[in-house]
Amino acid sequence: MTRHSLSLLLRNEPGALARIVVLFSSRGVDVESLSLGPAERGDLSRLDVVVDLQPGRTPAQLIKQLGRIVDVKSVVDRTHDEAIELGA
């Protein structure tokens, strides 16, 4: 398992969060923590999520799969940023 921290911007549309969570469960992604809040733009929400990936699965692959969800506007891998914040 490898741990990754992702930050997503998604449209405030019904079902947007559900579609993301279902992607995690159907692709075997373990969710460690998840937090949803309003983004600066009123029609968008920000989702921060920490996930564990199974061996052989890459964060790049997951980011692309998230990216094809119509209501997802952007996905950023923050794993590295967090390491800096923690002084690692």
Binding site: G15, S26, V70, D71
Partner: peptide
């Protein structure tokens, strides 16, 4: 959800 590209209500 897991078997559609997108959906609307």
């Amino acid at each position: 959800l897991p078997i559609t590209k997108h959906s609307f209500q």
